[in-house]
Every structure is written in C-alpha cells, then in structure tokens.
Design a protein around this nucleic acid. Structure first.
Lengths: 245, 245
DNA sequence: ATAATAGTGTCTGTTAGACATTATCAG
DNA sequence: CTGATAATGTCTAACAGACACTATTAT
C-alpha cells in the first residue's frame, strides 16, 4: 500500500482498475446432500450455464455489506450465517473485462433455503455431487440435479465450479472444530439432525455414540428440556446452540 | 455476477470502482519468535506508522502475480511459500479513497528473511508480540521491537494490525494439519528446528517425544541420512520434506 | 406386544502428555 | 571421563470407533 503515497494528489478515478464483485454460495441441504442455489444465465457469455448469485461492489459499501445485499436482493432472505471464502482474481474469469470476485459462503437452514427457492423465481436448487473427499486437488465439484430432474450434470458459468468446490472443502475443514453446523439447523434441533448435517457435508457416515459424546463434551449445546413432536416412535430431545448466533 | 450482463456494451472504465491492492505479511522467525518485515511510512496519511509492503493490482496481472511482484520488488526475494489470507474491504481503511486489499501471507525461512532485511533498505524487522492464544476475538497483535531496540510497541498503519493478527491465527490453525511449517525452514532441518518453528508460532512449549512421533507418523518427513555439523554435542539427524515444495 | 428410533455402557485400539532412560557426539 | 543434547521406552489418561444393549414413544 505504500504506493498510495504516489496517488495522494491524483484523481482516484484516473487509473484503470479491475471490477470488483461478490459471488455467493448459498448452501443448504436437500435430501441429506449439500445443495446450492443458482441462476441460469440468459445472456452471453456463458448463456445457458448456471451461475452463483453475485453483484458489483459499490464504492460506499463494505464487502460484507455487498454480500448481504446480494442475499437480500437475489435470495430474498437475511439474518443467516455468512462468511468470506476466498478472492478469485484470474485474468480470464470473465471474457469481457477484468473482474475480481470476493466469494462468500452463506449457510441456509431448511426454511431459509425453501423460502429463497419459492420467493425468487430465477433461482434453482442444485445438488452438489461431492467429489469423494480426502484427496486434495483433482477435478472437484461437478454439479447434478435440479429440483425435479435429478441425475444430470449442470454446467457452471465462469470459474464458479472452483468457488463451489472451495466452499465445500472449507466447510468440511471447519466442521469439526467450529460450530458452523448449527447455522444449517433451526434454532431447536435433535442430535440426529446435527449428525445428519455433519454427514451430508462430510459425505461420510459417523459413529453415533462417538458423535454424541464429542458434541456434548464441546459445551456448545444446551438441552431445551422439550422433545420433538409428531414422531411415531420415541421422540428425541431438542437442543439449542449455547453460543448466541 | 449476473449484473455483468448489464454492462456488456459499456465502457468498463466508466463506473466507479474501489481501488484494489495486495498487502503482504512477510513472516519469519527471530530469536524463536514470529517476526514480520515492515516499511515506515514517510507521507500522510499515517506518516511515521509502520505498514505492510503492498501494491496496486494491475489490470493484466492475477492477484497471486501481484503478490509475487511485491515480494520481488519490495523484499527482493522470490520462490517462497505464499498464500492468500483474506480480503479487507472496510470503507475507511484508507482515508483518501476506497481501497480493497487482498492480504497475502508469505513465509520466509531464515536466509530469505535476512536477505530481504539486508537487501532492501526501507525494511525493518518487527517481533510480533503474540497475544496469548486460545481466546478468539479480543484486541490482538500488538507489535513490539525492531531489530535492535527491543521492547517498544510499533504503531501500525491502516488496518494492518488486523491483517497481522489474522496471519498469525491462520498459521496457528494450519500448523497441525498441514505442512506449512516446512516453509519456514531450510531444505534440510532437524526435528528440534521443526519443533522450534511450531513452538514459535503457537507460543507454547511442546512435548518432545509426542511431537517427534506425530511428525514422523505423518509421513511428510524423509531422513537425509546425514547429520548436522558444528555442534559441541551429539549432532541431530537432518530431515527433508517429502512433498515437493 | 411390535416397530422404530433415541440414547447408553463398554470394550478396544490409537494417540498425546509426562517422565525417565539410553545414545552419541566434542573435548 | 564430563557435559550437553539427541533420541527412545514406557506408563497413563483421554478419546474415537465398534457393537450391543436398554429406553421410550405411537399404534
């Protein structure tokens, strides 16, 4: 930043600058698998391909504010967990001009995911076909399956497949040592639901007693005292997150 | 990014955009403590305060390339580990104009650190007084001590204290499940040196047998067969990283 | 009682910390 | 031999996976 000295007396608009955008991975769960909300591109370039919702960053808004605005304007929701992921600055991300994009990850609990899908006509849900984990690198994150037509692979626009892949990998990494998983659950939830979230993100089955022990020992959970309703079997106890969300 | 449609036929330069920079945390170790290389600002704003080396991002270079250029031009070195850290986009980071900065972390083994310090007149080494770990949030990362005058706290320019704090926290988090530590060591090193790196970054003493077992079990290390020279006691075995750097 | 899932007890193998001990070098 | 540090053996506590078992609800 020392070169800013050089610019002290200059018109800030006089220098060529990359465009700056934010792109959001709107991540939720569908049928026990991670899913994301995408927009089908109508125009060139990449017409017909699927893109993450995004927007340019205005001069008078922070990056976080821009991300929250996209969440409001393109998904119609707010008040959910959102975090910065990585900044993508490849030269040919967009064929028209130089665009640097700050990627964000938003975690949508089921009601928010459904609300966005129902309330915003352009959005579609896409299951993320998780590349089997562990191995770093590799091709990563093919997409498949829209709301109804399941099985097909969706072509993604720009470098959005990379962004999506990174989102899943980041989430996997944070899952075990942070409380992000709660961001994908309603305020009250059962331990089974929590385990389902972990299994969906990790793409793995987990050991029930061990999982329960770990979670309860963490001190992040608080029993509500009540139990789930409407089951035809023994109802599970409901917990809530102890940390204020 | 869907709004890029809107701009398809427009002059890309016609819209107001934030300036985009990269700022580098040049991290090495001095006397068993993490240290960083800083530049003292001569002009306003923040004249007299200390800043991370940085630069504007050119239209025809990637973010990574910009970071490597800063490494070359401001530290006089290259070929070392460098990774993107986080992107800072607060509105008032720089009082003159809106500047969004992509922060990078560069890890300098001792020779590179010394070479940069000796070869680039403006650079100073500053010990990072690590805020005692564990607790998240908090004030974080006060600086102290230049090369000679130890003990005093250096005032940092802009939001560079935040960047520095994040760099240390990120490194601590990655230390145990990745091989970043090797990036702070020469090609051949002893297990004691490796442990010293870990202890410096974590700000903690580690258990020797346990540390050795863990490291050797990871499979990241390869014995070179030779031993260190010039000791007045039993020389330690030298290892190298198995992964190609 | 049955079906179905919630929740727990317990065994075992793995791993980390603590501590003591042995090994190996220079002089 | 002494001094200093490298390197290892071993005990113990903490913890995860596996598996079987008990508990509790609706019907």
């Amino acid at each position: 930043m020392s070169e800013t000295d050089f610019l002290a007396g200059y018109d800030p608009g006089a220098y060529p600058r990359p465009s700056l955008t934010v792109d959001l991975v709107l991540l939720g769960l569908r049928d026990g698998r991670p899913a994301t909300l995408l927009l089908k591109r109508a125009q060139q370039p990449h017409a017909g391909r699927w893109a993450l919702p995004g927007s340019f960053v205005a001069l008078d808004e922070t990056l976080d504010a821009a991300a929250e605005r996209v969440l409001r304007e393109k998904a119609g929701i707010s008040g959910i967990h959102i975090e910065q992921l990585y900044t993508f600055g490849g030269l040919d991300r967009d064929p028209r001009m130089r665009v640097v994009s700050v990627a964000y990850l938003a975690l949508l609990p089921e009601p928010a995911f459904a609300e966005a899908l129902a309330g915003m006509p352009g959005l579609s849900a896409a299951i993320i076909a998780v590349p089997w984990s562990g191995e770093a690198g590799g091709p990563v994150a093919a997409l498949s399956a829209d709301g109804r037509r399941t099985g097909e692979t969706l072509p993604l626009a720009f470098d959005h497949a990379d962004i999506l892949a990174l989102a899943i990998l980041r989430l996997r990494g944070k899952l075990d040592y942070s409380d992000v998983a709660f961001a994908l659950l309603p305020e009250h939830f059962t331990l089974r639901q929590l385990q389902d979230v972990h299994e969906a993100i990790l793409g793995t089955r987990l050991n029930k007693p061990a999982f329960r022990r770990r979670m309860l020992d963490r001190g992040w959970l608080e029993p509500t005292g009540s139990r789930e309703a409407g089951t035809s079997f023994r109802p599970a106890e409901l917990y809530r997150s102890r940390n204020p969300r």
